[in-house]
Amino acid sequence: MSCIQQMDELVKEYLLFRGFTSTVRALDTEVKSEKDKAFRPDKIVEQFVHYITLYDLHGLKDYWNHFDQSVFERLDQNFMPAIKKMENSLLRMYLINACVNGKPEKIHEFFEKLGYELQHQLEWKDWFALPFIKNPEENPTYMVYFTRQWQDTMLISLHNLLAISFQCLPQPKLTTYHEEAARVTRLQAENDQLKSKLARSNVCDSRESGSANILSSDTLPPGLDLIDEFYLIPVDTSPADSHSRSFRSFIRGFGTNSTGLVRPGVKKIYVKIFLR
């Protein structure tokens, strides 16, 4: 019921859009005088206390009857004892407030108007003696009702009873639509968060894959081969091979100058060498 005020604004916006100005004025008038207070338990409790402090017994009873008929009757029968106890507590708070503030006439008025209704209830048997007892705050029967703790506990219990009762009421389709729209918005936000998390996870996986393949030959530019870092280390050669290569080099360079030409005055000599 927390969205009732927002729903009221949406309804008025629609009525103004349609040009139903007289309907909007009528709605505003009824909203200001409504008893349900937009189903806000705190405001309803304040209204009950207002009737008690003003000694408005008729207003107190009428306000309770409104919720008894429009809200409490829809509840399960298991709630009935608690509801009846709460009604009695409100009436007793009215009497205690009159006693504390020295209003004996209000106490007599109370029993004159409600005496016939309450005389058959066992819970009120001892309370009919209240107008004739001096210092009732010291009497064991009424002492607890004069304490601040009892009064605060009673008002909190009334608040909780109203809150639970409103939750049990069937919701109109307009408020259901609002809740459904809020649920869709919440799911969309969760979906966006999951998408963002998945994107970050994919980026991390790509970086790890690139680091693992950095030494692969597939990542080298075309035409560039890996070079053995140990190619400068000479290989093991035997003395015979070294001697043979040196002798061949001597034969190739025999009779030629540094440019590879035959020296003047030197005839070519063909030497046939048999190497082992």
Rank of each mutant, 00 (worst) to 15 (best):
Y116S: 15
Y116P: 05
T219M: 12
A199T: 08
D8L: 05
E180A: 10
F250I: 10
D62E: 07
K272T: 10
A163T: 09
K267E: 11
H66L: 09
C168H: 10
R25D: 13
A129Q: 02
L60K: 04
K268N: 13
E105R: 13
G59Y: 04
R186F: 13
A98D: 02
S165V: 01
S70L: 04
S246F: 15
I164M: 11
E117L: 11
R245H: 10
D225T: 04
P41G: 01
Q167G: 15
L194T: 07
A212E: 11
T141D: 02
V45D: 00
F250C: 10
A129M: 02
S217V: 14
E30P: 00
K103E: 04
P136K: 05
K12T: 05
A163F: 09
R252K: 13
A129I: 00
L75V: 07
S2H: 14
N88H: 11
E87G: 00
N135L: 05
F20G: 05
K173A: 12
R25I: 10
S201P: 00
V203C: 06
Y177R: 06
P136T: 01
Q193G: 13
I96Y: 08
Q171H: 06
Q119F: 07
L16P: 03
A199S: 13
Y94P: 00
F20K: 12
V11D: 08
I214K: 15
T219R: 11
P239T: 03
A38I: 07
E179K: 13
I214F: 08
I251D: 03
T21S: 12
R248K: 15
L60D: 05
L130K: 03
R245D: 02
R248Q: 14
I83V: 12
Q151P: 03
V262M: 10
N213G: 09
E46L: 04
L155T: 02
S196I: 06
K173V: 15
I133M: 03
K267Y: 12
N191Y: 15
F67Y: 13
L215G: 09
L122F: 11
M7F: 07
F110T: 00
F132W: 02
M86N: 11
H108W: 09
S238N: 09
T147Q: 06
L226P: 01
Y14G: 02
F166M: 01
L232V: 07
K103N: 06
E9I: 10
Q193D: 09
H178N: 10
A98S: 07
D225Y: 14
E137T: 01
S217R: 08
A98P: 01
M86A: 11
K106Q: 11
L162V: 03
G260L: 01
D42V: 05
R148Y: 12
T219C: 12
I164G: 02
N202L: 12
K32D: 04
Y14W: 09
M7G: 06
V49A: 08
P234C: 01
M86W: 05
F254H: 06
H50W: 03
F230S: 08
N202M: 10
I233C: 03
H120P: 00
H159K: 08
P170A: 07
D28W: 02
S217Y: 12
I44Q: 02
